[in-house]
Computed example of a mutant assay.
Amino acid sequence: MSVDTLTSVGPELLELIPGLQFDHAELVKAHQQYIERVPLPPSGKEEDRLRRLGLTHRVGAEEPWRDAGNGQFNQETGEKNFEESDFCVFNEELRDTYFYEIYKSLPFRPGRMRLVTLHPGEIYHMHTDHSRVAHMAIQTNEDSRLLFRSGHTYHVPTDGRIHILNTMRYHSAYNAGATDRIHLTMTLAD
């Protein structure tokens, strides 16, 4: 018995924003600009430099580049660490990038806006989010997918479109391919 892909399932798990499409080449360029500018983390370790990358941050954040990389919930207690609406500031040092053009064009209020890399062989545990999350693929491969507990999978293509996934349902993401999967993710704050 085969399981349908999300594109045939309907809006309960996936929504594409009609009429809104961004230039993928500019998205790739903005990602490269980000990578060139991101400072070393507090650990001072080069291997940690590209972890927890954020484009938005909270007012007064000590580390604007990484503030959005933190989880919304305390993994031990389950308590909420913050509200998505707290992430209302776009990183000043990135306002000359295409990411800022995207931010200003969004038809929803974003909370955490992040760059998320899934390396070959990585998989996230099954979980739910408090809000839906929009994805735009910067780099991907056909074997990188989001997986819902229902068994439905979805591949976000590099088409410049915003794919809003209902991540309030149990889901995971995996990269069974040979190259990194890099997504711009935007949590809906509304």
Rank of each mutant, 00 (worst) to 15 (best):
L106P: 00
L40I: 13
Y170N: 01
P41Q: 06
L188H: 04
R149F: 08
H155G: 05
R181S: 14
Q72D: 07
D4N: 12
S172T: 10
F73R: 08
G19Y: 06
G111N: 11
L13F: 12
Y124V: 14
L115F: 02
H31D: 06
L27W: 02
R49G: 03
T179P: 01
A176W: 04
T7P: 06
N70C: 03
H183M: 08
H152V: 02
T97L: 03
A137V: 03
G71R: 08
T5W: 15
D96V: 14
T158S: 15
D180S: 13
M136K: 07
R169L: 15
V133G: 02
K29C: 06
T128S: 09
I182R: 07
R51H: 04
K104Q: 14
Q75I: 03
D96I: 12
Y100I: 02
H155C: 12
D4S: 11
V133R: 15
E46G: 02
L27S: 10
T117Y: 03
L50C: 01
F87I: 01
Y174K: 12
R95L: 06
R181T: 13
M113H: 00
V89A: 04
P64G: 03
H31C: 08
L55Y: 11
R109Q: 09
E47S: 09
R114N: 02
D4G: 11
T5M: 13
R149K: 14
P11L: 04
I35P: 00
R161N: 11
H130Q: 03
I182D: 05
E83P: 00
R37K: 09
H57D: 12
R109Y: 05
A25G: 13
I162V: 13
P42G: 02
Y170A: 01
N175M: 13
T185V: 13
A137D: 05
F90W: 04
M113F: 15
R66T: 06
A176T: 15
L55I: 07
A189W: 15
Y174A: 10
D180H: 15
Q21H: 03
W65M: 09
D159L: 02
T187Q: 11
E79D: 07
K80H: 03
N70D: 09
E76H: 14
L16W: 05
R112W: 07
N166M: 06
H130N: 01
G151A: 09
M168E: 05
G71M: 07
I164T: 07
A61S: 14
A178T: 06
N74D: 10
N81F: 01
I182Q: 05
E101I: 00
H119W: 05
A178S: 09
L50S: 04
R58A: 07
S172Y: 10
Q32V: 00
R114I: 02
G69M: 14
Q21C: 12
H24F: 00
L165K: 07
E15D: 12
A137I: 03
T185L: 08
A189G: 04
D67C: 14
D48S: 04
L188D: 10
M186R: 05
R58L: 12
P42N: 10
L40C: 05
H57R: 15
M186G: 06
T5F: 15
E101C: 00
H31V: 08
T158I: 09
G54M: 09
M113Y: 14
N81Y: 02
E12M: 12
A176G: 13
L14Q: 07
L184S: 03
Y103W: 11
A173Y: 09
Y124H: 15
Y34N: 01
